[in-house]
Design a protein around this nucleic acid. Structure first.
Length: 488
RNA sequence: GCGCCGGUAGCUCAAUUGGCAGAGCAUUUGACUCUUAAUCAACAGGUUCCGGGUUCAAGUCCCGGCCGGCGCACCA
């Protein structure tokens, strides 16, 4: 769609005059869904004797001489409007309403002879006119470009959009309420960061005029949240946007919503238990079941979720025992055999993680915890007591995609400094996603971080599953799109 | 960033091997006292995404660009 949609001006000149003068308020008294419930008992042709004031958009209009029917929708549902020349003030203009116009209607709740619950219009007001139409009244709007750039129209034109975004909202609410219920305090941490940290990702860069400094949009709130734990807030969470300057795909948006939470005195086992309870609980809150059909295939959220060490899964996939202690050469060879390019800077740990991703990740359909991540790919996680090349870390996978990431937090400032230095060496070697040394964070650890476990959940990914969406953009109200160049 | 596919009326979509750009809905006008995507009749509506090229002739073929979808890469 290179051209913006052209205006379709309706000529209101005859019925309403121009400019149309619309009211500043409407004394609304009832919603469609409530009317359907309250007056469901009315028989065909029966009148309730009750007057209501409803408002919404005209979705359909059937004008038939000296009577007319309209279908009006509000945020809760639809109801029919029934107008009669003999009963309706300004009937002539009612028949000239346009699809998409906002109207406020006063009238009696009745059921028509043909059995449709209706508001018999005594009088109505045009609250706002629709100067553009909302697409084909049967087919809606199909053009992705128009749907994503103008979600306000898509929401009226396509039921699936309304349902998907409503489910996302319900999910966010459920996650938040479950965190509150578990004693987590909701906090907010900076989005403008002097150092991008807490994850491995290329950041967005911006600039503050008065401070004369560059800032990075956060790629994760992780380190700030742990500093709050150092400060004595033992359970904190943040539900907010993070920004990663990476490719866009059906499963990646440059800005996305992350839930991160930290609990003092927990380890990663405790956090896995909480993750199950949180995610499965939220799914049940929204959908009322633990068995969800996603893209035609069932996902079973029933707890406990499977728990599998990364090395075990990778070994099964390649048909031989591999681990973080397998020689780098052998792991690299296995990767090369699978057409994965091995970078010189990768050690055995990174190779094992890559091997797992290449062979196992996309097959993990039901929610599954993968545990025991190599230290090399986990610069903020605490070492596993039985094997110091591994960490007490897990990621959960769902429908073949990463859903969450959690671990026992590294609390030793000296170890943390060395991990950062390893990352800095990767950055120097050209890895623009490696972490940078965050001296303030090391200083925070020197004040003492108690044993703590942390979790990050990709909210958009979970919303996709709950909305049965194959594309992330279906659960983001306004996904990031390339701006249309004006010179075209 | 690379590859494949797509962009035609406000919306949804047609258009044969290159041969007069169409339909439904919406809009406008008219008919109609129980409709349900109401129905019926009529009018109007086009830079076929943009810019070049080939050709007697381009929506269609070629080149470049814009935007989108999907795949790959990237995303621990």
């Amino acid at each position: 769609m290179a051209h913006p949609a052209r205006f379709t001006y309706h000529s209101w000149t005859q019925p309403f005059g121009r400019p149309v003068s619309t009211p500043y308020t409407f004394a609304h008294s009832a919603y469609c869904a409530a009317l359907a419930e309250t007056y469901g008992h009315l028989a065909a042709g029966e009148e309730s004797g009750v007057n209501v004031a409803v408002a919404g958009r005209v979705m359909l209009l059937r004008s038939q001489g000296r009577l007319a029917f309209a279908t009006m929708r509000d945020s809760t549902g639809e109801i029919q409007l029934f107008a009669l020349e003999s009963m309706t003030r300004d009937f002539e203009n009612f028949t000239k309403l346009h699809l998409g116009d906002w109207v406020g209607v006063h009238g009696e709740v009745v059921r028509t002879k043909r059995g449709e619950l209706s508001v018999k219009v005594a009088r109505f007001e045009l609250l706002a006119e629709a100067r553009r139409n909302f697409g084909d009244k049967w087919a809606g709007i199909a053009d992705y470009d128009l749907r994503y750039r103008h979600r306000e129209a898509d929401l009226w034109a396509n039921d699936v959009t309304r349902v998907s975004l409503a489910r996302r909202s319900a999910l966010v609410r459920a996650l938040r309420e479950r965190c509150w219920a578990a004693g987590f305090m909701e906090v907010e941490t900076p989005i403008l960061n002097a150092i991008p940290t807490g994850a491995a990702a290329r950041p967005f860069v911006t600039y503050h005029q008065a401070l004369g400094s560059e800032f990075y949009l956060r790629i994760a709130p992780e380190l700030w949240l742990k500093r709050l734990v150092v400060g004595g807030f033992e359970r904190v969470f943040e539900l907010g946007r993070v920004f990663r300057n990476e490719g866009v795909s059906p499963r990646h948006n440059p800005e996305f919503t992350m839930l991160e939470l930290y609990a003092a005195y927990w380890n990663y086992e405790d956090m896995m238990a909480f993750t199950e309870e949180l995610v499965t609980g939220a799914v049940v809150d929204v959908l009322g079941t633990t068995r969800v059909t996603y893209q035609g295939r069932e996902i079973d959220f029933t707890t406990p979720w499977a728990r599998r060490p990364m090395a075990e899964l990778a070994s099964e996939a390649v048909g031989e025992a591999v681990s973080v202690h397998t020689s780098r050469e052998r792991l690299a060879q296995l990767l090369t055999e699978r057409d994965v390019e091995v970078h010189p800077s990768w050690g055995a740990g990174r190779c094992l993680a890559e091997l797992f991703e290449a062979t196992c990740e996309s097959d993990l359909w039901n929610p599954t915890f993968v545990t025991q991540y190599p230290v090399e790919v986990s610069p903020l996680a605490r070492r596993h007591p039985q094997d110091h090349e591994l960490t007490e870390r897990f990621e959960s996978f769902l429908a073949g995609r990463e859903l969450s990431n959690g671990f026992s937090e590294l609390t030793d400032p000296q170890d943390q400094r060395e991990r950062f230095e390893d990352q800095a060496r990767l950055a120097a070697a050209g890895d623009d996603e490696a972490m940078r040394i965050d001296e303030d964070y090391i200083k925070a650890l020197e004040w003492g971080l108690p044993p703590t476990a942390g979790l990050g959940v990709g909210v958009d990914r979970l919303a996709m599953v709950i909305a049965d969406a194959s594309n992330l953009r279906e659960v983001i109200a306004f996904p990031t799109l390339k701006p249309i160049r004006e010179d075209q």
